[in-house]
Amino acid sequence: MTENEYSLRFLNCELNYLSVTDGSAIFMQGDTAVIAGVYGPVESKLHKMFYNKANVEASFRPMKGPPSVNDRLMESYIKDVCEASLITSLYPASSISVNIQELEDCGGLLASVINASCLALINSGLAMKFIFAAVCCMIDKESENVIIDPNMKQLNNAKAAFTCVFDNLNKDIICCQTSGRFTEKELLKSIEMCRETVQTIFTFYRDIVTKYATAI
């Protein structure tokens, strides 16, 4: 295994990018860029209210046009991951909404969207059990090699693509999205490789928070 295969594309982020939201982040992974904004806890609508926990909502806006069926699926991934990490019982009868706007998709959009929403949640100061980070990987059609964090060009030659989300406690997997045809062995190997890479993103989060916390 060479060093290159475990490396991610260039990561870049700015926190508190939007003025109106309670927490926001603009996040770039390679050429894939997204903006995430978090509102919450705000007053919940009556029919969506839970008396013992906060209602978490996610909405995803693609670069152009209204959200499609696939975008709705993406929203459900974001919602479930955010709900798992937030301590929703601290904010009963309220609503927390996570809004994502796609700016550019050059591969690994779901991973970037999940990382951006984590940074926005960190910025919002909501209580969380753990933080999460997503890594995208794929299996090449010809060489059958696992490539970590592929770009659009590489993804066109993919036999299968995976996005795995991990927490920072024990690096347990909390969400996994797959596409294409693959064997169980290939999946487990890919997950293991993503797990080894994910520390880079957690270190990146810590660097960003350090940069902002020392400035205020």
Partner: peptide, 17 residues
């Protein structure tokens, strides 16, 4: 930032809400 004064511990964080 984790702050600590005698036996009191807290986190000084950025927050808007």
């Amino acid at each position: 930032i984790l702050k600590h004064r005698s036996n009191v511990f807290y986190v000084d964080n950025f927050q808007k809400r």
